[in-house]
Lab assay of single mutants.
Amino acid sequence: LKGVVVAGGVLAGAVAVASFFLRNKRR
């Protein structure tokens, strides 16, 4: 169960970083 929580956190972080980079590329 702990691994699932960690994986979810990593996935959420990756999505946040990806969206951040996409926003920067638009400018």
Rank of each mutant, 00 (worst) to 15 (best):
L1V: 01
L1I: 02
L1F: 03
L1M: 00
L1N: 06
L1D: 08
L1K: 09
L1P: 04
L1Q: 00
L1C: 04
K2D: 06
K2N: 02
K2A: 07
K2M: 14
K2G: 04
K2T: 15
K2H: 05
G3E: 00
G3W: 10
G3A: 04
G3L: 12
G3V: 10
G3T: 11
G3I: 10
G3P: 06
G3K: 15
G3Y: 01
G3N: 14
V4Y: 13
V4T: 15
V4G: 00
V4N: 13
V4I: 08
V4A: 11
V4F: 05
V4S: 15
V5F: 04
V5P: 05
V5T: 10
V5K: 08
V5S: 01
V5L: 05
V5N: 10
V5Y: 00
V5A: 05
V6I: 07
V6N: 05
V6F: 00
V6Q: 03
V6C: 09
V6M: 15
V6R: 14
V6T: 00
V6S: 13
V6W: 09
V6L: 05
A7M: 12
A7V: 10
A7N: 12
A7Y: 14
A7Q: 15
A7K: 13
A7G: 11
A7D: 08
A7T: 12
A7E: 09
G8P: 12
G8Y: 14
G8L: 14
G8S: 14
G8N: 11
G8K: 12
G8I: 15
G8R: 14
G8C: 09
G8W: 12
G8H: 15
G9P: 11
G9E: 15
G9I: 08
G9C: 10
G9M: 09
G9T: 13
G9A: 08
G9N: 14
G9R: 12
G9D: 11
G9W: 00
V10I: 02
V10M: 14
V10F: 15
V10R: 14
V10C: 12
V10E: 02
V10Q: 05
V10K: 15
L11A: 00
L11I: 01
L11P: 01
L11N: 03
L11G: 07
L11C: 12
L11Q: 04
A12S: 10
A12K: 15
A12D: 02
A12V: 09
A12Q: 08
A12E: 13
G13H: 15
G13K: 09
G13E: 14
G13L: 08
G13T: 03
G13A: 05
G13F: 09
G13D: 12
G13R: 14
A14G: 01
A14N: 08
A14Q: 13
A14H: 13
A14S: 08
A14E: 02
A14Y: 04
A14W: 08
V15S: 06
V15T: 08
V15F: 11
V15M: 10
V15Q: 06
V15D: 00
V15I: 07
V15C: 13
V15G: 02
V15K: 13
V15H: 12
V15E: 01
A16G: 02
A16Q: 15
A16P: 01
A16T: 01
A16E: 03
A16V: 06
A16Y: 02
A16S: 03
A16F: 13
A16I: 13
V17K: 06
V17M: 14
V17L: 01
V17T: 09
V17P: 00
V17D: 00
A18S: 05
A18P: 00
A18K: 09
A18D: 00
A18G: 02
A18L: 08
A18W: 12
S19W: 09
S19M: 08
S19L: 08
S19F: 00
S19D: 15
S19V: 13
S19C: 10
S19T: 10
F20D: 04
F20A: 02
F20G: 08
F20Y: 00
F20T: 09
F20S: 12
F20L: 07
F21Q: 07
F21L: 10
F21C: 01
F21Y: 12
F21S: 03
F21W: 12
F21E: 03
L22V: 01
L22T: 07
L22S: 07
L22K: 08
L22P: 03
L22W: 01
L22C: 07
L22A: 10
L22H: 14
R23M: 00
R23A: 06
R23I: 02
R23Q: 03
R23E: 04
R23W: 03
R23C: 03
R23H: 10
R23P: 01
R23N: 06
R23S: 07
R23T: 12
R23K: 03
N24C: 05
N24S: 09
N24R: 13
N24F: 07
N24K: 15
N24V: 07
N24E: 07
N24D: 05
N24I: 15
N24Q: 10
N24W: 01
N24A: 08
K25Y: 07
K25D: 02
K25C: 06
K25V: 05
K25L: 06
K25M: 13
K25W: 07
K25I: 03
K25G: 06
K25Q: 06
R26A: 03
R26M: 05
R26E: 04
R26P: 02
R26K: 06
R26H: 10
R26F: 08
R26S: 04
R26N: 04
R26I: 01
R26Y: 02
R27T: 07
R27G: 09
R27K: 15
R27V: 03
R27S: 07
R27A: 06
R27N: 05
R27D: 02
R27Y: 08
R27F: 00
R27Q: 06
